[in-house]
């Protein structure tokens, strides 16, 4: 196992302290944004599993979030306890992810991308047109917030702590999965599918699992999203949202564990910081993404890693240079 760099340790402690104490010095909107960050990160974590570890493009992560959100909103609206609805959202998205991936992963190329693209549009049409169930374009209002261990999450602060603890739980699940033999098989798949196959890894089943689990993460994120925002409508879960999640994972760094955290943070904070640019925000953001991809396709964390590697190799060559004179003098 890699030794944890002391700087990384200190950074981690600072981040944790900030996240825990944030409600004390942030206004309600700031807390709401942080809760949204936690929820979005869960969805991005799932996509990172599909994309960064199993190497498949999914263009339906946003749609799966929508599916989870609608499932939770409709079930809690019908009087079902929140945690039952929460679990149902995850199970449903897992099952649908499995059914979508099954045919798509039979064939090579990026067919999953196309199938998920189709699914994302189909789901939007269903949400918009089936008014008897989803209330169409008017969306669902007044989604109740859950009571966790007897604590009501009606205030943003309480909900934020709830979302944060969920994020920690899901991050832990993912961390554990990646380190298990299972997760190692995922990585083997990404690095070299043919080699993995010849070593006895069932490529298709593992890819399918990665995708289905990734989708389930989105479903759980949706189950948190609905009570957080308390109003859902089909437009929020259009293809654009899926694309945004995809950009988040790649901007943060696909295949890096911390990538989605970073990507979601950038995606939520940048619009706030670039507010002075007014309407030009998306223009600037998209131009930045194109530039980032051209110079560092492994994302922001890729840049960090590159700098670290450069420093290590500089240090190594400095060490060699220090040894070199003694080597020449002995000759």
């Amino acid at each position: 196992m890699k030794r944890v760099h002391p700087l990384a340790l200190i950074g981690g402690v600072i981040v944790a302290a900030f996240l825990l104490s944030a409600p004390m010095f942030l206004k309600s909107y700031g807390i709401y944004l942080l809760a949204l960050w936690a929820v979005t990160t869960i969805a991005a974590l799932g996509l990172n599993l599909t994309l960064g570890y199993a190497g498949q493009i999914s263009l339906a992560q946003g749609a799966f979030v929508g599916l989870g959100a609608y499932t939770t909103a409709l079930m809690t609206g019908a009087g079902v306890p929140y945690f039952v609805a929460f679990l149902a959202s995850g199970v449903l998205t897992f099952a649908i992810g499995w059914c979508l991936g099954y045919p798509a992963l039979r064939v090579q190329h990026h067919f999953l991308a196309f199938v998920t693209l189709a699914f994302s549009t189909l789901l939007f049409l269903l949400m918009r047109n089936e008014q008897w169930l989803t209330n169409g374009i008017y969306g669902i209002n007044d989604i109740r917030r859950p009571t966790v261990f007897g604590i009501s999450t009606n205030k943003n602060t309480e909900f934020y702590y709830f979302a944060l603890s969920m994020l920690v739980a899901f991050a832990f699940i993912k961390w554990w999965m990646i380190r298990s033999p299972w997760g190692r098989a995922f990585i083997a798949l990404r690095e070299n599918p043919l080699r993995a196959a010849s070593l006895g890894v069932n490529v298709r089943r593992y890819t399918l699992m990665a995708f289905a689990i990734g989708s389930a993460f989105a479903g759980f994120a949706g189950a948190l999203y609905a009570p957080l925002v308390q109003f859902i409508e089909p437009n929020s879960f259009q293809l654009t949202y899926s694309l945004k999640l995809l950009l988040m994972v790649l901007v943060g760094g696909a295949g890096y564990f911390l990538g989605p955290f970073m990507g979601a943070l950038i995606d939520l904070l940048l619009p706030e910081w670039l507010r002075f640019t007014q309407g030009y925000y998306l223009l600037i953001y998209s131009a930045l993404v194109v530039t980032l991809m051209a110079f560092c396709p492994t994302g922001v964390l890729g840049i960090v890693e590159r700098i670290r590697e450069a420093r290590i190799s500089r240090a190594a060559s400095a060490a060699r240079a220090a040894q070199a004179p003694s080597a020449t003098s002995s000759n």
Partner: peptide, 9 residues
């Protein structure tokens, strides 16, 4: 993949 993302952006 990076190219896909780039064309999306």
């Amino acid at each position: 993949l990076p190219l896909v993302v780039s064309t999306i952006a």
